[in-house]
Amino acid sequence: MLARIHTDHKHILTLLRVLSGKAKSLREGKEVNLTLIRDVVHYLMQYADHSHHPMEDILYRHYLDKTGRDGEVSQLEREHERLRVSTEELLDTLGMILNDAVVPREKLIQDVEAFVEMQIRHLKYEEAKVLPLLEATFDEEDWKQVDRLVASKLVEDPLFGRASEQEFEDLRNYLADVED
């Protein structure tokens, strides 16, 4: 379970680097592929907000039930909700732009940069504080129980998974080109 979460985080960071690079290009006055940015944000909404974060929330609730202490994990469900709202808002802005609505370039740049910063801060917090705490607290029986609890949230990653969806084909090709 933790290996999957770490892998998801690595993939999300890859996409956040793409967004950061696109924001930098926008700041430099360059033209960027806004559809690519939208695809990254859409993936984060579809996979992170609807599968990855709910799966983590189940882990955190199990920790709270087991220990009765909230400590490092108390803010995570609230953070996940803020991330979800931020993702939806950025996706809405991108949709408006792609449908020819006028949105100031500086607003888009600031929104993308703030989105990336919020996401990275969240991932670092989970990696440095929460996941080590879960690893130190859960025993084999806890992991078995958590596996049963998260089974309904586990979906194949639509971008990085083996059975990748056609919907993200352009983004997958872009990532493959960047790696070459």
Rank of each mutant, 00 (worst) to 15 (best):
residue 85 V to M: 10
residue 146 V to Q: 09
residue 144 K to W: 13
residue 162 R to G: 14
residue 129 K to N: 04
residue 19 L to I: 00
residue 93 T to P: 07
residue 68 G to L: 10
residue 4 R to L: 09
residue 77 E to K: 01
residue 58 I to S: 14
residue 102 V to R: 11
residue 173 N to S: 00
residue 102 V to N: 09
residue 163 A to P: 08
residue 62 H to Y: 10
residue 9 H to L: 05
residue 7 T to L: 13
residue 112 V to F: 06
residue 50 H to Y: 03
residue 107 K to A: 13
residue 96 M to C: 08
residue 48 A to E: 02
residue 62 H to L: 11
residue 141 E to P: 04
residue 63 Y to S: 07
residue 95 G to E: 14
residue 32 V to E: 02
residue 137 T to D: 07
residue 153 K to G: 13
residue 29 G to C: 05
residue 124 K to S: 13
residue 112 V to K: 02
residue 139 D to P: 09
residue 101 A to R: 00
residue 117 E to I: 01
residue 123 L to K: 09
residue 110 Q to W: 12
residue 76 L to K: 11
residue 7 T to Y: 06
residue 173 N to G: 03
residue 67 T to S: 03
residue 28 E to M: 10
residue 108 L to I: 00
residue 40 V to L: 06
residue 46 Q to S: 05
residue 31 E to G: 15
residue 157 D to E: 04
residue 178 V to E: 15
residue 160 F to N: 10
residue 7 T to A: 12
residue 16 L to G: 06
residue 109 I to C: 05
residue 5 I to A: 09
residue 93 T to E: 08
residue 137 T to W: 09
residue 80 H to R: 01
residue 113 E to W: 14
residue 120 I to V: 15
residue 158 P to M: 13
residue 116 V to L: 04
residue 34 L to Y: 15
residue 71 G to I: 05
residue 67 T to Q: 04
residue 179 E to I: 03
residue 14 T to A: 05
residue 169 E to H: 10
residue 105 R to H: 10
residue 48 A to L: 02
residue 85 V to I: 12
residue 30 K to G: 05
residue 144 K to L: 15
residue 118 M to H: 14
residue 74 S to Y: 00
residue 99 N to V: 03
